[in-house]
Amino acid sequence: MTLEPMPLAWLGLTLLAYLGSRWLYRRTRIYVLSPLILVPALLLAIAAPLHTRYAEYSADTHWLMAVLGPVTVAFAVPIWQQRALLVRHWAALLLGMLAGSLASMLSSWWLARWLALDPAVALSLVPRSITTPFAMPLARDLGGVPEMTAVFVMFTGVFGAMLGGVLLRWLPLRSPLARGALFGVGAHGAGVSRAQEVGREEGTVAGLVMVLTGLLNLFAAPVLERFF
């Protein structure tokens, strides 16, 4: 069964659910109502009983994903605006991003192998802590499944945004730099919006670090391909 008779039904539903969820989340600030969780949950609740396949869903909506390209371009604006911060703290940020990315990829890979997950799943887990527009192409380069990676990235973001707040309460971190980097490297976009709630400087650092980590990982892809 499909929603075939209505052209663009899935696109309409997606947009409607997104706008509704965004409005709800802005009013209530309840995390479960954020578009990241509520929209896929709603759409899956409609699509699963209808036995809709992903191919049918994406026939209407694939061009939304194509916008991730221009989104990547847009990241140049905050990078350029924050270049002073970058020049001042490049060593701390670069080392943090490198160490965090290595920790992310290695721990994902080893845990996945240890728990005997399928190789395709393990490879798709490797780029899970970077932001989606970078994680999907990296997954493809590594031999994983980009769509699967997008799902893992989402779970990482949701979990990381919630966990990061708890960790901050326990960790003896001196600098807003470290607090922001924790969110930017660990929980990408969802982490950035959480970091913005912690403080302005934290939010800025998180956003910057999120983009740069994505770039760093993508440029490391030729090396990573040989390793995994």
């Binding site: 943090g96 965090g100 721990s107 994902s108 845990l111 399928d118 887990l125 971190l173 600098s175 924790l182």
Partner: peptide
């Protein structure tokens, strides 16, 4: 078949990433 194990990987690995990143940045900063 693998959903729970996948979530476990994501949860543990996210904790590791956050600790490693934050302590590295803080150490260099100090």
């Amino acid at each position: 078949q693998q959903g729970l194990r996948i979530l476990l990987v994501i949860a543990i690995s996210t904790v590791v990433v956050m600790l490693v990143t934050a302590f590295t940045v803080d150490a260099v900063f100090r």
